[in-house]
Simulated assay, not measured.
Amino acid sequence: MLLGAERGAGCYAARVLAKRIIPCLDVHNGRTTRGQQFGRAEHGELRDVGDPVALALRYDEGGADELVFYDITATAEGRGAMLDIITQVAERCFMPLTVGGGVRTLADFRALFLAGADKVSINSGAVANPEVVRAAAEHYGSQAVVFSIDAKKRPDASGWEVYVAGGRKATGLDLLEWAVRGQELGAGEIVLNSIDADGMKTGYDLEATRAVARAVDIPVIASGGAGNALHMRDVLLYGEADAALAAGIFHSGQTTVGEVKRLLAAAGVHVRLVQHATLGW
């Protein structure tokens, strides 16, 4: 039996030169939700936007390069990841799946790979125990380990601080130093989640994304702030990201993966255009 990490390795290598467009599903209690600046469910700050399996199928048919699932309260509430949802999606979709939320141990990595994940994203668990990143990279390969970072600009504008537990807890870690540490531990790529920009639809944090992209040699995925396709273009061109992740603009139907890719191609950005009968390409 091939684990998801092994199945996804070839796809990762073939796609690394093309800019990727990645829908993201933030899942809470089995439903896809959206909020702003890491809104909290207990405060009524999350909005239900649909069934995660149905949305995943839509993005698979629409030409998404990958799909990211985050169990957004797993770490804060001490729960494991949503293995049943991942299994359903992996059985019906062909795009690579990245899953994060509540990942703390090598056993958590294995459980997600067995459920069908191609990559596993670790965030708070890496801060608590950095060596688990090294162990996972050595065991499953760097291509299967995603180093996710939630960062917020410091009040004095001296840089960005790393946060954990769904953006609830400051760590004192510097963003750029922590990104470099993730690469040294063996992670194959970094997801940079901007807490300031999250859900605001005013654009990605280009400065932070560019700084991280220049600090490391592994791919950087920009997350937080997409309000339209032009924002995705800007973070890939001017933010120097290797991929752009978005949620709300896709869930709402404001735009589609296909529309974003056509705009990017017209701007000279190398993307993977997939011919599909339902896309009208």
Rank of each mutant, 00 (worst) to 15 (best):
V27R: 04
P96M: 05
V89S: 02
D51N: 15
D26M: 12
A267H: 12
L3G: 14
D198T: 05
I218M: 04
E42V: 13
G159H: 08
G8Y: 03
D217Y: 02
M82G: 07
T202W: 02
A115S: 13
L97I: 10
T98G: 06
S121F: 08
A90Y: 01
L230A: 07
A213E: 00
L67H: 05
F113L: 08
E91W: 07
A115E: 07
G39I: 09
V257Y: 06
R134M: 10
L3V: 11
Q37W: 03
L245G: 05
R210E: 12
D150E: 15
G101V: 04
F94M: 12
L114N: 08
G44S: 11
A14S: 14
M95S: 04
G80H: 13
D26S: 14
L55N: 03
H28C: 13
N29E: 15
A213C: 11
A136Y: 03
D71K: 05
S124I: 12
K153E: 15
G239L: 03
A18K: 13
T75W: 03
A215G: 06
I22P: 04
Y238P: 00
F69L: 14
T75L: 11
L264Y: 02
I249T: 03
A136V: 07
A243T: 02
F250H: 01
L192S: 03
A18Q: 14
H139C: 15
L264C: 07
D48L: 12
A81G: 08
M232H: 00
G44F: 11
R104I: 04
H270M: 12
H139R: 15
A90R: 00
G78F: 06
A187H: 05
A111Y: 02
T75I: 11
A267I: 00
R134I: 07
Y12P: 01
A126E: 10
F69E: 00
R168P: 05
A247H: 02
G258A: 13
L97T: 01
T33L: 15
D51K: 03
L237V: 13
A115F: 03
A13V: 14
G141Q: 11
G182Y: 06
Y238K: 08
K201T: 05
I195P: 04
N129V: 11
I85S: 00
L263K: 08
L236T: 02
I190D: 02
V68W: 00
A266T: 12
K201L: 14
A74S: 14
E45F: 09
G224Q: 01
T32V: 15
K201V: 01
S148W: 04
I190H: 04
V191C: 08
L112V: 07
G224W: 02
Q275E: 13
G116H: 06
G101C: 11
G268K: 06
L55H: 10
R104V: 05
D198M: 06
A151L: 10
V216I: 05
G44A: 12
N129G: 10
G225I: 01
G253Q: 06
G280E: 07
G141P: 06
S148K: 03
T98D: 01
G159A: 11
G101F: 04
A76P: 09
R154M: 14
V220F: 05
H276C: 12
K169I: 13
V49Y: 12
L173A: 10
F38G: 03
R110E: 15
G186F: 03
T32H: 06
